[in-house]
Write a protein that binds this DNA or RNA. Structure first.
Length: 263
DNA sequence: ATGACTGTTGGTAACAGA
């Protein structure tokens, strides 16, 4: 069994104790992180190593930042991707590595701010460039594209579609961009809903978590053949509780991979 | 409860997040 997970931690320095605790509790083989907000030179490789995980990071502090944490190998790390657009400069939003024979991507899609902003055009361009970059990899072998997509794929992925009219994350253009990724050969793994909803993000404000007003924007996309190996998928809603949580919860996917042919 | 955010920075107010 291979357990992969993705979690937007909203600052790894602020969240490190919770991340270390969560690794101990959830026992993922691979964890993709987003919004690490930490420069590579300061990344807590040693702290992760102490609990049994290798790590590779792509960040420059401040905003953004992604990483992959693995206890089943971490090879052929690549940062960013060919054709990736900037705003205007390149941002730290993508890292990939091979872990336990699986190509894993950790991505942080731009927020978009508002549908009439240049940041929204950047978001769409970034997703289209990602699709082009993934096209070859998707046909090359098993791949998992994990992260904060900042898009709710359907109306069932937001607590109240009426509350999102005119907002980012739900527009036809954004959903079409994610749909193009699926058409390229990826499957959006549907996690078991805990507490009746499939949400992965709840705004910090106005008690939205406690009122169940969330969104599903953190996704695990698996190459279609690999998706047949999913034996379980869930959102760890408990990780959103308590003191100083991230505003996102981890998504966990369990895979029962077919036996590897021996070489 | 007629309310209720959190993180970052040549930083203590402005901004980004979604």
């Amino acid at each position: 069994m291979l357990r992969i997970a993705t979690w937007n931690v909203n600052s790894l320095p602020a969240r490190l104790p919770r991340v270390l605790d969560w690794l101990e509790r959830a026992q993922p083989d691979v964890l993709c992180l987003q919004e690490t907000k930490i420069a590579d030179a300061s990344f807590p490789h040693a702290e992760l190593e102490a609990v049994g995980y290798d790590s590779a990071a792509c960040g420059d502090g401040g905003y953004n930042g992604v990483a992959i944490v693995s206890r089943v190998g971490l090879e052929d790390v690549s940062r960013g991707f060919t054709g990736e657009p900037g705003f205007p400069d390149l941002e730290k939003r993508a890292i990939a590595a091979t872990c336990g024979g699986l190509r894993v991507w950790s991505i942080y899609v731009p927020n978009g701010r508002s549908p009439d902003s240049p940041a929204f055009e950047y978001k769409l361009a970034w997703l289209e460039a990602l699709r082009l970059a993934l096209n070859e990899e998707i046909t090359g072998g098993p791949i998992a594209v994990c992260g904060d997509f900042n898009v709710a794929p359907t109306d069932a992925d937001v607590w109240d579609p009426a509350a999102f009219i005119g907002s980012t994350h739900v527009t036809a253009a954004e959903r079409s961009a994610v749909g193009a990724l699926l058409e390229a050969g990826l499957t959006d793994v549907q996690p078991r809903a805990l507490k009746g909803a499939p949400f992965t993000y709840w705004d910090y404000r106005a008690g939205m978590f406690h009122k169940g007003e969330g969104m599903r924007i953190d996704l695990v996309l698996l190459s279609n053949t690999l998706a047949a190996s999913v034996v379980d998928a869930y959102i760890d809603r408990d990780a959103r509780k308590g003191t100083k949580p991230s505003d996102h919860a981890p998504v966990v996917v369990d895979l029962e991979l077919p036996p590897q042919p021996s070489s």
